Amino acid sequence: MNRRVFLGATAAGLAATAWPAFIRDAFGDGAACEMNGKPSTAPPVAQVSAAFRRAQQAGKALLVLVIPADDSARWERGRAFGELLNFGADRDLAPLAGVEVVCATMADLKKIVPGAGAGEPLMVLVRTDKVPAAATPLDASLPAYKSGRGIDRKSWEQQQKDEEKIAAQRIGALGDLLRKSLGGADDRDVAARAAGVRARLVKQPPAGAHWASSSGCGTTIEGVEENGVIGCGMGHVPEKSRRFLYFFSVEQRG
């Protein structure tokens, strides 16, 4: 079985002398972003610094999907983001076209953006055009799923209907949050922008995470060789939560 650790990260292979001073202080001279198309295993703070630099070069803001410190909360938040990215409508995803996206803990984010704020909001929006960078927490209340265990077939059918409703509410809440915070959902090219987001963040995972899937027992992590059974015993997983962002790294054998 593969061992879970905090997700390793990549860093941009850019000239460190061009970085803002607070990034140089946080991560020295950086490390290579990729090797042969595969992410490196640099420390998580390197992932954030690389994403900040990419956003700054592109003239974009950095959107951080916050990874909770608690393991259970990581599973739950990874599923919520998975629901949004996999099943969100064009108007939900289009705002993401205008930002660089990275997944990170608040602890690692604060090493790069000391003013990132307190707590563990769903997301943090970082403006990269000023030093020090300005950060805005983005948060919303997401309804929780009920347990699907120990119910008869009739109740199970109702459970599935309830889960579809809750999934729509969760996606809607996240979509509203992005539209209000980032804009861009009412542009004429909203469909094209959403398609670009899907190509960038759904076919491949956002920086700082893996895509994974589970139907309740065992987790398959996409793009990872020698996939082990991880998290067996999770129990029932709502249909739209079955492909989710996996906020742990996997140490592969061999």
Rank of each mutant, 00 (worst) to 15 (best):
L85A: 11
T220D: 10
K203M: 00
F247C: 11
K111Q: 14
V64W: 04
I230S: 12
R4T: 02
G208S: 05
G82K: 08
E76F: 10
E100W: 02
V126I: 11
G175H: 08
G175M: 03
L138G: 12
G115C: 04
Q252A: 12
A185R: 01
L109T: 08
S49N: 10
D25Y: 06
A195I: 00
G115Y: 06
A26G: 05
S214C: 09
A18G: 13
L174H: 04
M1P: 11
L62T: 02
V66Q: 11
K161L: 11
I230K: 06
L174P: 12
L96Q: 08
R54W: 00
P238E: 03
T41N: 09
A42M: 00
R170E: 02
A97V: 06
V64H: 08
I171E: 10
Y246C: 02
A107P: 01
D129G: 06
T17K: 13
P137G: 08
A118D: 14
V101G: 07
G98R: 09
F244K: 08
A55T: 03
S49V: 13
A116N: 05
A167G: 13
E34W: 09
A94Y: 04
D186P: 05
S147M: 05
A116G: 09
R77D: 07
D71R: 13
A11M: 05
Q159D: 07
